[in-house]
């Protein structure tokens, strides 16, 4: 423990989806617009899947990969885009660059630019997250576990994805609290190391709960 003491307060979130009125019909346009759109749009398309599909793990965890695979039938590019994970030390601009590089490299290998013939184009959007306090406050790991069982799944999204990338804390709120307040560095690292993009929010809830229960047993 480094002397910081505060209770953990859960905050839910709600997403307002804003349409940018920009659409791409082919992979070249997709790349060009990825270069231009506000950074919040990159964030939205890399993450909004989680808030839309609480219970379902889809083919790929970001909108770019899903559109390329499902609408353009370009599995090669789709698989490469799906492999981008906005984790580690990356910020959103790094992710934008990575997306552009991958599409650019891919386009240099194809003879014609894949485009949507009768499929819907890619519509660029961005979102604004409104965070609000649930009033649910916990002081130790045992209380945390009980609260995590009942909070809305949007709170899990907020404390994991929002805190890392949009709020730029670099870590999840959960791991910061475990490490800095409860002195549970091992648990904090385990939460940090979850491959979060492979789960729906409910799956993440279960995964975090299992790690917390194990840490409680080990204490």
């Amino acid at each position: 423990m480094n002397g910081k003491m505060y209770n953990f307060r859960f905050s839910d979130c709600i997403e307002i989806k804003e349409l940018l009125g920009i659409k791409a019909d082919d992979e070249l346009k997709l790349m060009e617009f990825i270069e231009e759109v506000p950074i919040d749009s990159i964030y939205y398309h890399m993450h909004s899947y989680f808030l839309r599909h609480f219970y379902i793990v889809g083919p790929y965890p970001n909108d770019f990969a899903n559109w390329v695979v499902i609408q353009l039938r370009d599995r090669v590019l789709g698989e490469k885009l799906a492999a981008i994970t906005p984790w580690g030390s990356k910020n959103l601009e790094d992710i934008r660059e990575e997306l552009i590089d991958i599409i650019d490299n891919h386009l240099s290998t194809v003879r014609t630019v894949p485009f949507a013939i009768s499929a819907p184009p890619f519509f660029f959007m961005k979102s604004k997250i409104i965070e609000f306090d649930t009033g649910l406050e916990v002081a130790d790991l045992k209380e945390f576990i009980e609260a995590l069982k009942v909070v809305d799944a949007s709170a899990i999204y907020n404390h994991i994805f929002e805190s890392r990338l949009r709020v730029k804390k670099g870590r999840t709120d959960f791991s910061i609290w475990f490490d800095e307040v409860l002195g549970l560095k091992k648990l904090a690292d385990e939460i940090e190391n979850i491959d979060s993009y492979m789960y729906g929010l409910e799956g993440l809830r279960e995964k975090i709960l299992s790690l917390c229960l194990k840490a409680l047993d080990d204490k």
């Binding site: 307002i16 989806k17 804003e18 349409l19 940018l20 009125g21 659409k23 819907p120 184009p121 519509f123 959007m125």
Partner: peptide
């Protein structure tokens, strides 16, 4: 407010999806 992304137009005001 529009019901689908494809309904959005090129407008200077915020366009929200609901």
């Amino acid at each position: 407010i529009f019901s689908l992304p494809s309904f959005a137009k090129n407008l200077a005001i915020p366009q929200i999806l609901i």
